[in-house]
């Protein structure tokens, strides 16, 4: 009887520990989130979305150039990365032999674990050095390297969910394989692929390290691909490590905007994913 009581006590003790672990995990995460919301809300205003950063130590201003720059970087990175990810996934799920597919899949998984600052270094040597200057293009290239494995793996998973009977139905109608893949298989997986793309965009939107010595950042407006460009994460970084309170406020506002954007993206991605399951 004593043994049983002990066992139950141990059971409850362990359950309590697990509960405490969960609370310990949620507490700092909750704190981070609470600060972003609190500090961010008190700093976001109309200027934030329309003005460029003020000189050091001055109040006001915003991150408009950073937002435009980030949008441009994301757009270019997507243009480079999505085709590679999606068509690479088509190869893995529709054509590839099992061994080579496994190798490529493994390479993609490993690539997704490469620290993002390394992609910055690679983009630097491949683009910044030959072009003799920091550029938005190099930044976008570095970001696309992060994007590719994410898009590849999610797309492949989605393509594998498309039932073979649909491919066969199309082939039996005398539709060539490539049209079948484009118009039936990929079409059916579209929702899921979109989810993957949105998640990848959410991921690169906040990446800072790969941009440090590629896009570099810019105090002013710029939309040229061959020149340094401002980006929100870079601005948040620079303002956060500065000694000025006014810049800190801008950093908080930027953080809030970035987080809201990313949550929206991942919620959108989830709802796409959910709708896919229902249909």
């Amino acid at each position: 009887m004593k043994g049983l009581i002990l066992r139950h006590l141990k059971n409850h003790g362990m359950t309590l520990l697990m509960c405490l672990a969960t609370l310990t995990v949620l507490l700092p995460l909750g704190l981070v989130f609470a600060y972003i919301v609190k500090m961010g809300f008190s700093s976001v205003n109309a200027d934030f979305f329309t003005k460029i950063p003020p000189p050091p130590g001055e109040a006001g201003g915003g991150m408009a150039n950073g937002m435009v720059g980030s949008a441009l970087l994301i757009f270019c990175a997507s243009a480079l990365g999505i085709p590679v990810g999606v068509f690479g996934a088509v190869y893995l799920s529709e054509y590839g032999g099992s061994r080579i597919s496994t190798v490529i899949r493994f390479a993609a998984d490993v690539l997704s674990g490469v620290p993002s600052i390394i992609t910055g270094l690679v983009a630097y040597t491949l683009l910044v050095v030959p072009m003799k200057g920091f550029s938005a293009l190099a930044g976008a290239f570095a970001l696309s390297l992060i994007m590719i494995p994410i898009v590849l793996r999610t797309t492949e998973e989605q393509l594998k969910l498309v039932p073979n009977s649909l491919r066969e139905a199309s082939l039996a109608l005398g539709v060539p394989l490539w049209r079948t893949t484009l118009k039936v298989t990929l079409r059916s997986a579209l929702m899921g692929v979109t989810t993957g793309v949105l998640l990848a965009i959410a991921r690169i939107a906040g990446e800072t390290a790969p941009l440090l010595f590629t896009a570099l950042g810019n105090q002013f407006w710029s939309h040229k691909l061959t020149e340094p460009i401002a980006a929100m994460p870079l601005q948040i970084f620079n303002f956060a490590i500065s000694p000025y309170d006014d810049w800190h406020r801008l950093a908080w506002a930027g953080a809030l905007v970035l987080v809201v954007m990313m949550f929206t993206l991942s919620l959108a991605a989830r709802s796409f994913g959910a709708r896919k399951k229902h249909s």
Binding site: L31, V32, F33, G206, A240, H248, W252, M262
Partner: peptide
């Protein structure tokens, strides 16, 4: 969801709070 918060924002919270 919290895993999706970018590194620079954790850094911001870290250095200022």
């Amino acid at each position: 969801l919290l895993a999706a918060i970018p590194s620079v924002i954790y850094g911001l919270w870290g250095i200022l709070v």
